[in-house]
Computed example of a mutant assay.
Amino acid sequence: MTAANRITVTVERGSEVVRLHGDVDHVNADQVEREVLTATRAAASVVVDLSAVTFLDSAGLRCLDRLVAAFTKRQAQVRVVAPEDGVVRFTLDLIGFLPETLASTLDEALRGLGH
C-alpha cells in the first residue's frame, strides 16, 4: 500500500482533517510526511487524525513531530487525534508528546481549534 492510500484529507468546520490509516513506520514515514505537507500547504488549521493508525514506530513519531513543527512554523493551528484507549495514544503519552496538541476525538480536536 502506498502512502497515498494511507492518507485522506477533508475539510471539516474550516479545518483540514488529515486521516492516516494503517502503519506509519520506517517504510513510509517520509512519504507520508511529504504527502501530508503537500495536501495541507494552504491550511490555517490542521487536525491529524491517528484513529485508524495501527502501528507507529520511531520513524512515525519523528514524522508526526516534524508535521506539528511545520504547521506551527507557518502559524497553522494543529491538533492530533489519538483515542484514549488506542496503542498510538499510549505511545504518545509515554513519550510525553506535546499534550497540548492531543485530543481523544475529532470533535474535541475541532473544538480545540475554535470551531
Rank of each mutant, 00 (worst) to 15 (best):
R6L: 10
A43P: 03
T40Q: 05
C63Y: 02
T40Y: 04
R34G: 08
F90W: 03
V17L: 07
V47P: 06
E84Q: 15
V46Y: 00
L110K: 03
E33T: 14
P83M: 08
F55G: 06
S104G: 15
D49F: 05
A43K: 04
D107F: 08
A44S: 13
A39W: 08
A29P: 02
V78T: 06
T72S: 15
E12C: 03
V18Q: 07
S45H: 06
V18E: 09
E33N: 02
R41I: 08
F71E: 02
E33K: 14
R34N: 12
V68D: 05
S45C: 09
T54Q: 12
D30Q: 11
T54W: 01
L113G: 14
E33H: 06
S51M: 03
L64W: 06
V68N: 02
S51A: 15
A4T: 13
E35G: 07
R74N: 08
A3H: 13
I95S: 10
L56C: 14
L110C: 09
A59F: 09
R89Q: 10
I7E: 08
V18I: 11
F97K: 05
E35V: 02
A76W: 01
V80N: 05
R89C: 14
G22M: 01
D65T: 14
D30V: 09
R6H: 13
T40H: 04
V18F: 10
G60C: 06
R79W: 06
T38P: 00
T8W: 00
K73G: 09
E84L: 12
A69H: 09
V18S: 04
A42I: 07
L64Y: 00
V36M: 04
D85K: 07
G86T: 13
A44F: 06
A39N: 15
T72P: 09
F71C: 11
F97Q: 08
P83R: 01
D25G: 06
A59C: 08
R89N: 11
P99V: 02
P83G: 09
A109C: 11
T91K: 03
V68A: 13
L20I: 10
S58D: 04
E108N: 12
G86V: 00
L20D: 04
